[in-house]
């Protein structure tokens, strides 16, 4: 089994202010999608990232949000186990971010044996 990271990107829409019910529905939608993967024993971990953040380089801070220059931001990531990249992509189908107009980038995690 290899490990993969899914990176979720979307364009923030400040005008979208979901009601508590809509947020609740959205959360259930995400959780059930995660549950589908966890039910196959392929879930490793996931986190949502807040919009607050800074980007910097050697010269110092270059942007206050993570999204000064690019319109899309990374909203979260997900770690899973799969036999191949194809299977990882297959598992990513149905990810709720797609319905909100976002995208999923699937990347293979480089395995190193440190023993």
């Amino acid at each position: 089994m290899k490990e993969f990271m899914l990176i979720f990107r979307h364009i923030p829409n400040p005008a979208y202010q979901p009601s508590p019910e809509e947020m609740q529905e959205g959360l259930k939608h995400w959780q059930t999608w995660i549950g589908n993967i966890a039910g196959q024993g392929k879930f490793i971990g996931t986190n949502e990232l807040s919009e607050e953040g800074k980007t910097f380089n050697k010269q110092g801070v270059i942007s206050d949000g993570p999204y000064a220059e690019v319109k899309e931001i990374v909203g979260g990531y997900f770690l899973l186990k799969a036999e191949s990249l194809d299977e990882a992509i297959e598992l990513s189908q149905g990810c709720p971010i797609l319905e909100y107009g976002g995208s999923v980038e699937v990347r293979t995690i480089v395995q190193r044996d440190y023993e």
Partner: peptide
């Protein structure tokens, strides 16, 4: 059953077990 499903979703993230996975699908 939606409540049960949501709890199984979280349970499987904490700890995988085949029985939980099967029961979750029933709740689904």
């Amino acid at each position: 059953w939606e409540h049960i499903l949501q709890n199984y979703n979280l349970l499987l993230q904490l700890e995988y077990s085949p029985i939980a996975a099967l029961n979750r699908t029933y709740a689904l």
